[in-house]
Simulated scan of single mutants.
Amino acid sequence: MADPESIKKALQKEMSVYQTLQQELSKFVKTRTELSARANETDIVLEELKLLDDDANVFKSVGPVLVRQDLVEARSNVTNRLEFIKKDLERLDGQIKSLEGRMMEREKEMMKLQGKLRAAGGSGASA
């Protein structure tokens, strides 16, 4: 049987790795929320641009100045921006899924170590 102290140290190490993964997941989720909001806003802008007549005046903000922009160009720019945001969301979803998988592995490992610690006569709750 393994030494309870070495099991406790291994469990603490796993818990530390797990907490780091949780922090990383929290950052990814926050970023995803922000990107999702930007995607929604951009989608609304695109829908509004679709409602305009072809001869409508469209302006974009360039610093403190509003500059006239062609409606077709504006639609194209907003469509491209929306595509980029959606690609970023897909990439981020993949990273989140991968991170969640790594967290599940750490959870399983922590449970194994807690079982070994109990079997070795130590207290799993203290770690």
Results as ranks from 00 to 15, higher is better:
21 L>M: 10
81 R>A: 03
55 D>T: 11
11 L>G: 05
81 R>P: 00
111 M>L: 14
6 S>L: 09
37 A>M: 07
65 V>P: 05
127 A>E: 12
94 G>W: 00
36 S>E: 12
29 V>T: 04
8 K>F: 11
23 Q>E: 15
59 F>R: 14
30 K>L: 13
113 L>V: 03
61 S>G: 06
106 R>Q: 14
85 I>N: 07
119 A>V: 09
9 K>E: 13
57 N>H: 07
90 E>Q: 10
48 E>S: 10
3 D>L: 11
94 G>C: 01
92 L>N: 10
119 A>C: 04
70 D>M: 01
8 K>C: 12
50 K>G: 03
82 L>V: 00
87 K>I: 02
17 V>K: 07
7 I>T: 04
14 E>W: 00
8 K>S: 13
29 V>G: 01
93 D>H: 12
68 R>P: 00
47 E>Q: 15
2 A>T: 08
9 K>N: 08
1 M>K: 11
64 P>I: 08
34 E>L: 09
21 L>F: 10
83 E>I: 08
38 R>W: 11
104 M>Q: 15
43 D>P: 02
51 L>F: 04
55 D>N: 14
35 L>H: 13
57 N>F: 07
31 T>Q: 12
120 A>D: 00
100 E>L: 07
80 N>Q: 09
40 N>K: 14
60 K>A: 04
121 G>A: 02
25 L>F: 03
27 K>Q: 13
12 Q>W: 05
55 D>K: 15
42 T>Q: 13
114 Q>R: 14
111 M>Q: 13
122 G>Y: 05
119 A>K: 10
79 T>F: 10
32 R>P: 03
25 L>R: 15
30 K>F: 13
28 F>I: 04
60 K>G: 06
56 A>V: 05
82 L>R: 12
45 V>P: 00
94 G>F: 01
44 I>C: 06
25 L>D: 00
125 A>K: 09
99 L>S: 04
39 A>H: 13
101 G>R: 08
52 L>R: 03
112 K>Y: 04
63 G>K: 00
97 K>A: 15
25 L>W: 06
17 V>R: 05
95 Q>A: 07
18 Y>S: 11
5 E>W: 07
124 G>K: 10
58 V>H: 02
8 K>E: 14
52 L>G: 01
103 M>L: 10
57 N>T: 05
98 S>A: 09
22 Q>G: 02
75 R>F: 07
4 P>M: 05
106 R>E: 11
31 T>P: 04
93 D>N: 15
33 T>F: 09
72 V>T: 09
20 T>Y: 08
27 K>G: 00
26 S>W: 02
119 A>T: 09
13 K>L: 10
7 I>Q: 02
9 K>Y: 05
101 G>I: 02
3 D>I: 05
79 T>Y: 15
25 L>G: 01
48 E>W: 07
106 R>C: 11
2 A>G: 07
112 K>E: 13
